[in-house]
Design a protein around this nucleic acid. Structure first.
Lengths: 331, 331
DNA sequence: ATTTCTGTTGCTACCGGGTGCAAACGGGTG
DNA sequence: CACCCGTTTGCACCCGGTAGCAACAGAAAT
């Protein structure tokens, strides 16, 4: 298989210099109609297109954005990724998907992204220790970092999130109104709970309602199975009379797992015996099999803002957007 | 913010030439221990790491793989992406996620990937017209293309898939054994049905069992909602006595949507009134709320093979791997 | 006819590394 | 001390573009 044609080859074929070829491919460049036509003809014949790698090297901008993801169990990531990639591509950018795991941690990934000269890094809901990253942040030439769908806690690293305070206030108000008084909260991995702030606000708003006792327990991971395991553990070791009457889960996938366990294994009714609330409004939450009350993040707006920041249309600052409470039959 | 350090700067700091610096960062290069130490020290002090962009340009290999995705409604994509990115990263490769949609079609994306000099392109279950792509394929220097989780139909473009024939045989055998005799099949978008071959084999194996009448209808898209819509349309216009006794759906997400509609809106029992079968074994299929019989694709093996092909460890040829029938309560 | 201006084109230098060859080095051998 | 040989280092040139200046032609102005 032959190699790609270069500007040099097209130049020879068109009888001009390679700089004229470049100009034919540079919008707004000063070039005569006649030469442009000749060049484009020769380029078409040779199947030439500019080499973006070389261009990136010369212009010092790759139009690539690294997107770090570490929680693939949450199906909610998918529509987010869809919107994100679509909006990035509409801006001429492209997403490099980096899987953060035990073999490839944030430091590794950031170093790699840096070496690849990406234009920006998006930490898409990843669980990181701010200490680890704040060191790197101040190394030289590191690409700008942004956090999506999680709090940042690192100075100089803006985050685009759903307003957790507002969300939890609406949720607690709703639950209080429905008459629930013995709330419980299931977190995912405990390391992160502070980053999401959901638990913290949940407890706080119940306290404001005069309810000081919130049962809190946590799942091992963010997955339906872990949610089921956690709620099983809770139900087994709790006296039926002392059980919570409503369980809020840190995200939908935990909630669905929990709900399944509550109804399936324990034969309890949702919401009569125990109500359940999730977070994210994942597609299947609306199914009649679950009909889960949940809170929808303003996905499109969040993506719009973060892409706006990356492209420089918006100021790089932390933005918090309001979501929507979706009430269904589980409460 | 200062710019990144270059090999040139490190060379000056260490008192050697830039080529010696390069050698210090090239495994197996001929360099004296002493010089290497000096260089690495200077590099550490200046926070130098090689610029992968420049390296890619010089070596003509980017270690980037473009992954085309067009169906973000299927949650099954997520674990696949997780495994794929993890395995690629383990091989020193990185995935560039390209969202194929109406604004950014295959031709566009392929051109783009080509210009970016990616080492390979993976069409991950995307819906493409083979005519469109076979033209491009024979342009010069196009990166090698592979199809994952779908048939290729393009000469010279290998595919790594789950064995649809085996899968459907096992499924039909199972259904026949359970006594079902009025089968139906719901496809997603009709354009693709041939690429997945599932419907075709389904019909064929029922014929071999002496059942010639298979009801076939299709959903608009691959989503729970579309699945629900399609089954509603079918149930409304079909005389209850003529209804299928088992409905196989092209993938899980259609099946879950369908199941929800069958039970929720029509008050039918699954599997007593109508059994349902999916395909993929998405996590929630195992939940007691659904307990969907489905077929699990050999995800890890498929990814292993495609990564093996890309890295050159395996021959670039079409590979078909056996999956596993997962029988649950929906049949 | 000369000057000035404008649109067009070519050129040098550069982005930050990689390759292959030639020269320098240094130790052992005859 | 000359010679040989393997290791180490420097160099010219290359990867495929981009930036910005200088040169040039033809038209317009003087």
């Amino acid at each position: 298989m032959r190699k790609r044609a270069t500007a040099r080859e097209v130049a020879d074929a068109a009888g001009v210099s390679k700089w004229t070829v470049i100009r034919a491919f540079t919008p707004g460049a000063s070039i005569a109609e006649e030469s442009k036509r000749k060049v484009l003809e020769a380029a078409a014949a040779l199947n030439y297109t500019p080499n973006l790698l070389a261009r990136s090297l010369a212009t010092n901008s790759t139009h690539q954005v690294a997107v770090f993801v570490d929680d693939f169990a949450n199906p909610q990531k998918l529509p987010f990724l869809e919107t994100l990639t679509e909006r990035l591509q509409a801006e001429g950018l492209v997403a490099v998907l980096i899987n953060i795991n035990t073999h490839f941690d944030h430091v590794h990934a950031l170093l790699h992204a840096d070496q690849r000269q990406v234009d920006a890094v998006i930490l898409f809901g990843t669980a990181f220790r701010s200490e680890t990253l704040s060191d790197l942040q101040f190394g030289r030439g590191t690409p700008p970092m942004f956090v999506l769908a999680r709090d940042s806690q690192i100075e100089g690293v803006p985050a685009v999130t759903c307003d957790a305070e507002l969300a939890l206030r609406e949720i607690v108000d709703h639950l209080f109104e429905r008459g629930y008084r013995r709330p419980g909260f299931m977190t995912g991995a405990t390391v992160l709970s502070t980053a999401l702030r959901r638990r913290q606000h949940f407890v706080e708003f119940w306290r404001k309602k005069g309810v000081d006792d919130v049962a809190v327990f946590s799942a091992e991971k963010y997955s339906a199975e872990a949610g089921a395991d956690a709620v099983r553990g809770y139900l087994k070791q709790t006296n039926p009379a002392d059980r919570v009457d409503v369980l809020m889960c840190e995200n939908d996938i935990l909630a669905l797992g929990a709900m399944d366990e509550i109804r399936g294994r324990f034969g309890l009714r949702v919401p009569e015996d125990m109500a359940v609330v999730g977070f994210d409004n994942y597609e299947l939450c609306g199914s009649s099999a679950y009909s889960l009350t949940t809170y929808e993040q303003p996905r499109d707006e969040m993506v719009e803002v973060i892409v706006g920041i990356i492209t420089g249309r918006l100021e790089p600052e932390t933005v918090t957007l309001p979501g929507t409470l979706v009430v269904r039959n589980s409460t």
